[in-house]
Every structure is written in structure tokens, then in C-alpha cells.
């Protein structure tokens, strides 16, 4: 029994058939990168796991239990966190309120906040500030902190380095690396080097299906095997 398992997932947006049978697995403690060009269905795969865009057929299982048909908040309660593309801060809420909103009902809020602030001191400094006024890098830190504070066992991380300066990207990379000590991660990332650094295994998507997979140790960023699939 895999930790997270997708089996022949087919997802549509209205009429357009986006995921045409996706199979993938993430094991406990593992970091798995999902690679592919723009528009091949990576974000849709994540949305299908979260039931934000429920699959029309196929199955998504987490710890052996099917997620299909559940509400998104139930998926979240099962222990899956989402660090979306574009961060999606609650821009008019303060940094602290953004974190508070992510704390599960059963957890002690102050304790959870304390842990988050220890990990990301910059957020502590800015706790009263509106999240919308943070810099891109700070927002990404907040998004990661929001994912971690939710007591999750699996994080779905979409394009964490997008739009960030190189210096900040390495900060984010470090934060993700330390996060990967605690949780499993399914990572969508355009920066191949970053993705391969962080991940244990990888999948390559094209036209809504998985076309290749393997161990990250077996490939490098310049490999013909990957370049063929990833360059336009």
C-alpha cells in the first residue's frame, strides 16, 4: 500500500480532457518531482488530488483510502497540504491570520504559531503585516509555513521558485529541504536542477499522461532523456 496513489485518473475542464489517465505514487518520506512542459496537466494533477477539480474517473488513494468524492477540506484534514502556484496568500489578512487559518481545529494555536515562527523568523517580525504587502520570497516562506503548520504528512508543492530571484530561490530550496525531513512531498517545479536536488524520484508528464519516470540519481539536468520531454 502506497502512501499516495493515483490510478488512471481522468479529469476534465468542461469539455476539455486534461488528464488522460495519470498513474503515480508517492511513498512515505519520499520527495517526488512531477516534471513536464507548461500545460501538460501537472497543476491539474494536484487539483485532482485535492478534489478541487474532481476526477471524472480513476482513483486517488491516500493511505489506502480513496479521496474521490470527498470535499477538499476533508482531503486537507486527512493530512495533505497545498502550497499552490502563485502562493495564494489571503492578501488582506495579516501574516499571523494566514497562519492561524491553517492550524487544524484540534491543535493548540499558540504552540503551532511558535513553532512556525521559530522555523521562519522573518514571519515573526512581520506577523502583523498584511500578507499582500510581503515580498515574493516572504510570501513563499509564508506559504510553506502555512503548509507545515497544518500538521500535514504530504505536501503538494506547485512551482515554488516561480518569479523569485536566484538568491531567494536557494532560501526556498533550503526551506523545502528541511521540510522534506518531516513530510512527503509531491513537487511540481520548472527549475530542473532544484527539482532534481530535492527529489528522490521523478515523473515526466505530457498530454495528460505520465510518459517517463525514474530515480533522480540516474539522471542529471542536462540529460538527453529529460531534455527531449521538457524543452519545447
Amino acid at each position: 500500500m502506497s502512501f499516495l496513489e493515483l490510478e488512471d485518473v481522468q479529469t476534465y475542464y468542461g469539455q476539455s480532457h486534461v488528464l488522460q489517465g495519470v498513474d503515480l505514487e508517492v511513498d512515505e518520506g519520499e520527495v517526488v518531482a512531477l516534471l513536464g512542459r507548461n500545460g501538460v496537466g501537472k497543476t491539474t494533477t494536484i487539483r485532482s488530488i485535492l478534489q478541487l477539480t474532481p476526477p471524472r474517473s480513476g482513483d486517488v488513494r491516500f493511505r489506502g483510502e480513496s479521496l474521490v468524492g470527498k470535499d477538499t477540506h476533508e482531503v486537507a484534514e486527512a493530512g495533505i497540504g497545498w502550497i499552490p502556484e502563485g502562493r495564494r496568500m489571503f492578501a488582506r489578512l495579516s501574516v499571523e491570520e494566514n497562519l492561524r487559518a491553517a492550524v487544524p481545529n484540534a491543535t493548540d494555536v499558540d504552540e503551532a504559531l511558535g513553532t512556525a515562527y521559530d522555523t521562519f523568523p522573518i514571519l515573526h517580525e512581520r506577523q502583523g503585516q498584511r500578507a499582500g504587502t510581503l515580498s515574493g520570497g516572504q510570501q513563499q516562506m509564508l506559504a510553506i509555513a502555512r503548509g507545515l503548520i497544518g500538521d500535514n504528512d504530504l505536501l503538494l508543492i506547485d512551482e515554488p521558485s516561480e518569479g523569485l530571484a536566484p538568491q531567494i530561490v536557494s532560501d526556498v530550496g533550503r526551506a523545502l529541504l528541511s521540510a522534506s525531513q518531516e513530510v512527503s512531498i509531491l513537487l511540481v517545479e520548472q527549475k530542473l536542477s532544484l527539482a532534481l536536488d530535492l527529489a528522490d524520484r521523478f515523473y515526466v508528464m505530457d498530454h495528460g499522461t505520465i510518459i517517463d519516470s525514474g530515480e533522480t540519481d540516474d539522471v542529471t539536468a542536462g540529460d538527453e532523456r529529460l531534455r527531449r520531454h521538457l524543452s519545447a
Partner: peptide
């Protein structure tokens, strides 16, 4: 889903 957040690439992805 398209309008909820323009930064999220879902529907656009689907279109291609």
C-alpha cells in the same frame, strides 16, 4: 475555477 485565481494554471493548461 478560471476566475478564482488567474495565477493558477489549471484551465489554461487544459486548453493546450
Amino acid at each position: 475555477s478560471e476566475e478564482d485565481d488567474p495565477s493558477e494554471g489549471g484551465p489554461a493548461e487544459g486548453g493546450k
